[in-house]
Design a protein around this nucleic acid. Structure first.
Lengths: 241, 241
DNA sequence: CCCCATTTGTGCGTATGTATT
DNA sequence: GAATACATACGCACAAATGGG
C-alpha cells in the first residue's frame, strides 16, 4: 500500500493521516510508540525527511511526542464512540468514555424557517425558529460543533436554558419537555472547513463526520433539527438495531 | 470560508473537493453549470489558474465538462442514499436510485479467524472463515468495496453463490438462509487508500465512509461480518429509528 | 565506566510541484 | 505562456540522546 504522488495531497500529509489512523486502530499498542522513522520511510517508499514532516504534524496535534534516542511515543489515542438509536443523547452517549462533559453556547438567534427546515420541523415556511450554535467538549477537548433549530413558539428561552445547563436534554426538561426521540439521522463525511479548524483545533485536511438529525416528542411532533460535525479521527458512530 | 495554505493539501485539490461536494449537494442545480472561473477564484481567494487546475481535475473524473464560451457544465451528479436499519440490504437500499446494480467478486479465500473476528462472529479463535472481497456498482459506477467474512462450516460455497448472483442476499438464499438481520453498524470516515483509488476510480485525497457491520440469522447467530468502504461524496447513510 | 546499536535532530544542495503576477 | 517565489521531496552526512551490554 503506497502513497500517491502528484495527487495534490502532499506525501507528508497522506502519511500523517495513515499513521493517525493506525494509532486510532491500536496497531502500535504493543510498544506504545510509532515504528522508527527509517522503517516508516521504507514502508511508505519515501525519504525519512518526509516521514519526519508527517510526524511533526502529528506532534503538533498532540498525538505523538518524539524523544531523541528513544523513539516517537504515542501521547493520545482516542476515538469516542457515539451510539445512534431512538434514544440518542449526546451526554449519555459518551457515557464513561470521558469524565468531563461540556456544552458551550457559541451563538443564538431567532430566524424564520427556510422551506427545507420548515418541512423537516413540520412548520409553515417563514415560521419563527431559534438557532443555537454549540460546541461540545469531552475531557476539555472539543468533539463536535453543531447548529440546532427549534420551533420558537414552543421553546422560547431555550438558548438561556442551554447556556445554563450545557445540555439539550436538560434545556428541554427546563422547558417542560421531559422526553424526546430520534426520528432519523443522515450521515455524510466532508473535509473540515475553516470554522471546524478553528473551533475544533484541527489541522487542515482533517475529515469531518456530519450528521443531520431530527428529534421529536413522544407524540411525534418535531422538536429539534440539528446538523452536527465531528472530527472523523476522534469519533465513530454505532447503530444498534 | 477560505482555503488553507501550507496545509499539505494543494489549493487546487481543496477547491476541487469543495466544488465536487457543492455539485453533490445540488448547489448549482439551478443552472446546471459551475459558476465562472473568475467568480470561483474570487470566492476562494485564489488566482484563476488555480481554479482551472481544480476544474481540470474534476473534468478528468468526468464530473464536469468545460465548453469554451458556455461555461463548465455538470456532467454527473450523484449522492446515493443508503438506509441503515434492522433489514439493511445493499441492493434493496439503493432501490430505484440506480437502474443497474452489480456485485463483483474480486477475490475469495479461506482463512482462520483472528481473535477480533472470532469474537464478533462468535466462533473459536482460529476457526475457518471464508473471506470475500467484493466491488459493488450502481449504473456501472463503483460505489463500494467490501471485505466480508462468513463462518466457513455453515456457508461453504458462498463465494460461488455470490459470484453467480452478485448479491449477498441471493447467495444466502441459495445456501438455505432465507432471512438475516443487521445487528450493529459502526461508521467512521478515513482518507482513501491506494486500493480505494484504483477500485473505485477516485482521485487521491478523497474521503471514504467506512462501515463495520454484523449480520445475524433470525436466531441471533452471527452469519456475516463486513467492512465496507464508500466514497463520501457519492454516498450518505440514513438511520431511521 | 565505556562502547555500541538504535533512534531522533539538523544541515545543505538539488529537483520538482504549486501558486501568483 | 513566462517569470518569480515558495513548498515539497530527495539524498547524503553527521550530531545528539537513549538504553543495553
Amino acid at each position: 500500500m503506497i502513497v500517491q504522488r502528484q495527487s495534490g495531497v502532499a506525501l507528508w500529509r497522506q502519511i500523517a493521516d495513515r499513521i493517525r489512523t493506525a494509532i486510532a486502530n491500536g496497531d502500535y499498542d504493543a510498544t506504545g510508540k510509532v515504528p522508527p522513522e527509517i522503517s516508516l520511510a521504507a514502508e511508505f517508499g519515501v525519504n525519512r525527511h518526509t516521514v519526519r514532516s508527517a510526524l511533526a504534524a502529528l506532534a503538533q496535534e498532540g498525538i505523538v511526542r518524539a524523544v531523541q534516542g528513544r523513539g516517537t511515543l504515542i501521547e493520545r489515542k482516542e476515538r469516542l464512540n457515539f451510539p445512534i438509536s431512538r434514544r440518542t443523547r449526546f451526554s449519555e452517549g459518551i457515557g464513561d468514555q470521558a469524565k468531563e462533559k461540556e456544552g458551550l453556547l457559541l451563538a443564538a438567534s431567532e430566524e424564520s424557517a427556510t422551506p427545507d427546515l420548515a418541512s423537516r420541523l413540520q412548520l409553515a415556511v417563514g415560521a419563527a425558529v431559534i438557532r443555537l450554535e454549540t460546541l461540545r467538549k469531552a475531557d476539555r477537548r472539543p468533539v463536535s460543533r453543531a447548529t440546532a433549530w427549534f420551533p420558537a413558539e414552543r421553546f422560547a428561552g431555550i438558548a438561556e436554558a442551554y447556556r445554563d445547563s450545557g445540555s439539550i436534554t436538560a434545556a428541554f426538561t427546563a422547558l417542560g419537555l421531559t422526553d424526546y426521540l430520534r426520528v432519523s439521522t443522515e450521515v455524510t463525511a466532508v473535509h473540515a472547513d475553516s470554522g471546524d479548524l478553528a473551533d475544533l483545533e484541527l489541522s487542515p485536511g482533517a475529515i469531518m463526520l456530519v450528521t443531520r438529525a431530527l428529534n421529536a416528542d413522544a407524540d411525534g411532533v418535531p422538536v429539534q433539527y440539528a446538523i452536527s460535525r465531528f472530527p472523523a479521527d476522534m469519533v465513530q458512530f454505532t447503530i444498534e438495531n
